[in-house]
């Protein structure tokens, strides 16, 4: 076997070992805290994650928004790409938007 093939194979082997080490490390250190989270949800009883709660974006949408959440259409404005780049009519929303607030 030529030198280059040898180097390449060792490199691929190295990559595999890095991947394995990485995965093992993650399996050993990361914990989902499933029990605590379920305890919390059992008390509070509300859905969704606390990752969208600025001004006109509310959590627990499935409880709060009467129609849109169960018939999700692309015209909905409360999702990432549309609102992220384009703020719709100021008259339409009666709460100050995040973008407005920063002005």
């Amino acid at each position: 076997m030529s030198k280059l093939s040898y180097y390449l194979l060792s490199f691929i082997f190295l990559l595999f070992s890095i991947l394995t080490i990485e995965l093992l490390y993650m399996y050993s250190t990361f914990s989902l805290h499933v029990k605590e989270k379920n305890n919390f949800i059992a008390i509070v009883g509300l859905p969704d994650l606390a990752i969208s709660n600025g001004a006109n974006f509310i959590r627990h949408r499935s409880y709060s928004d009467t129609f849109s959440i169960f018939s999700n259409g692309p015209e909905l404005l409360e999702y990432f790409p549309s609102t992220f780049t384009y703020s719709y009519s100021n008259n339409y929303k009666n709460t100050p938007s995040r973008i407005e607030f920063e002005n």
Partner: peptide, 19 residues
């Protein structure tokens, strides 16, 4: 931040590891 683009209350959470 793309996923939390409009959260003013950004949680300092750890992304759980799922392979």
């Amino acid at each position: 931040d793309i996923f939390m683009g409009y959260s003013r209350l950004k949680p300092a959470f750890e992304l759980p590891f799922i392979l």
